[in-house]
């Protein structure tokens, strides 16, 4: 399989590469337009801040390229958030593929009685699982999250989690998939989801 990982300035991708290696899959890390278009699958990772990630994409012209991709694309963490219209993080306009918004966990609004910690760090469960991305993944499986911003519930949600309120743990629209959790760090469940993506 010809697997490409989008290369841009958004955190380290080493963990994703190692997770793929554990599945016996090689990937090409690239920002080359032709290589991205030619790939069978594209992983769009992201760690760090939405604004600087978006700026880096635009600088390389990758924002328009990603939107034109026709093969299955998997955004991870900030990579998923960038698929949305807008993020409250530094008031960032994103790619606009998923017509919904990314918001900040505001403890005082979401959960005034029992404050929640922000960022959410740790293992939370996913439920209402849809699409082949979650083949053989049991409802309420645990995955590893680290994030201060969340994707609001929307019609493209294919996995739900709850942290003071329900939010989209994963989304899918056409060929674009996104997971808020770190599937590359989510033990066996994460490996299964990654493998399911590769099998799409």
């Amino acid at each position: 399989m010809n697997l490409a990982i989008v290369k841009y300035n958004a955190g380290n991708i080493q963990s994703v590469l190692f997770a793929l290696e554990r599945l016996g899959v090689d990937a090409k890390v690239t920002d080359d337009q032709d290589e991205l278009f030619a790939a069978d699958k594209v992983i769009f990772p992201g760690v760090g801040a939405a604004r600087s990630a978006m700026d880096s994409l635009k600088e390389k012209g990758l924002d328009t390229i990603i939107k034109q991709l026709k093969q299955p694309v998997l955004g991870i963490c900030v990579g998923m958030q960038l698929l949305f219209e807008h993020s409250e993080e530094s008031d960032t306009e994103c790619l606009g593929i998923i017509p919904a918004k990314v918001k900040l966990f505001k403890s005082e609004e979401i959960s005034p009685d029992i404050p929640i910690k922000v960022p959410q760090v740790g293992w939370n469960d996913i439920y209402n699982l849809k699409t082949d991305l979650f083949n053989n993944v049991p409802e309420h499986s645990y995955v590893y999250y680290v994030h201060s911003y969340y994707a609001e519930m929307n019609p493209y949600c294919i996995a739900t989690s709850n942290y003071g309120l329900e939010y989209a743990g994963a989304v899918q629209k056409d060929n674009f998939y996104g997971v808020q959790f770190h599937t590359e760090k989510s033990a066996k469940v994460g490996e299964l989801i990654l493998k399911n993506f590769l099998d799409l």
Binding site: F18, E21, Y144, K185, S186, A187, E191
Partner: peptide
């Protein structure tokens, strides 16, 4: 650290 990251599937 590289060796750990290569073999360990949790953070």
């Amino acid at each position: 650290v590289k060796r750990i990251a290569r073999h360990v599937n949790i953070p």
